[in-house]
Simulated scan of single mutants.
Amino acid sequence: MADQVDLVNRDPNNINAHLKATFEDVFAEPDGTHSIDCVWKLAFTCFNMCKGFWYKLLTLFCGCCMACEWGFIFAIEIFNQVWILTPHLRLLSIQCAPIQKLWTIYLQCCVGPCCDACGMILNNVRVTHVK
């Protein structure tokens, strides 16, 4: 577990690579259809400033609360996995072990030889396609 938070690379595992939202990812004017240069520059500035301002404002008011909520949800999920699901799966695996052994023996003794015999019979079958 990291002792320090990385303030430069905030998505080291590229979890949110699909959320790339720069001006160039959202707006594009095809060749032959261009707005006036000053409008394009102003739109670029407005987009970046508004996106930055509103994102920072939303994270200021909601970020810590959302982090607490998601921390709580993940704590519940981890608790369920560690204390409920994993022990149940282990219990089920213990209880099903004899059935698994019986089923394996049955398949090897009864079904396996039949499949081997069918395989030997059909081994020399050749399919050709004639036009």
Rank of each mutant, 00 (worst) to 15 (best):
K51G: 00
L60Y: 09
F27L: 13
V26I: 15
N48C: 03
L42Y: 07
E24W: 01
G32S: 04
A21Y: 02
A43T: 10
A17I: 14
S35Y: 04
G32R: 02
E29L: 11
C38K: 07
K56T: 08
A43Q: 15
L57K: 10
L42I: 00
F27C: 08
E24P: 01
A17E: 14
C46Y: 10
T59L: 13
L57E: 11
N48H: 06
C38W: 05
W40I: 06
G32C: 05
W40K: 08
F27Y: 13
K56L: 07
F23Q: 02
N48S: 11
E24D: 15
K51E: 02
C46Q: 08
T22E: 12
D31C: 01
C50N: 11
D31Q: 09
E29Q: 12
P30M: 05
F44T: 08
F44H: 13
K20W: 01
T59H: 14
M49E: 11
T33S: 11
K41E: 13
F27S: 02
T59P: 00
N48A: 03
T45R: 12
F47E: 04
K41G: 00
G32K: 02
E29V: 01
F23N: 03
A43H: 14
Y55F: 12
L60M: 03
L42H: 07
K51Q: 08
A43V: 03
M49L: 14
H34I: 01
K41S: 07
H34S: 05
L60V: 00
H34C: 00
A43K: 15
L60H: 09
T59Q: 12
D37Q: 06
H34R: 07
F44Q: 10
C46R: 02
I36S: 05
L57W: 10
M49S: 10
D31E: 15
C46L: 15
C50M: 13
F27G: 03
L60F: 12
D25W: 01
A43N: 13
F53I: 15
D25T: 02
K56M: 08
L58Y: 11
A28H: 12
G52H: 04
A43W: 08
C50T: 15
K51W: 02
K56A: 11
D25Y: 01
K56G: 02
T59N: 15
H18A: 10
V39N: 04
W54A: 05
T22S: 15
G52V: 03
L19R: 14
P30Q: 07
A21R: 11
H18N: 07
C46W: 07
K20L: 07
T33F: 11
P30H: 06
K56W: 06
T45N: 09
K56F: 04
H18Y: 02
D25I: 02
T33M: 10
H34P: 00
E29R: 02
T59E: 14
C38M: 07
F47K: 03
W40E: 08
D25H: 05
C50I: 15
E24N: 10
D25C: 02
F53C: 09
D37L: 05
E29Y: 08
F44S: 09
D31W: 00
T45Q: 12
V26E: 04
E29M: 08
F27E: 01
D37T: 04
I36G: 00
L19Q: 12
F53Y: 15
L60D: 03
L58T: 04
D37A: 12
S35A: 14
S35K: 06
K20D: 06
S35W: 09
I36A: 13
V26R: 08
E24Q: 13
K20S: 12
L58V: 07
T45I: 09
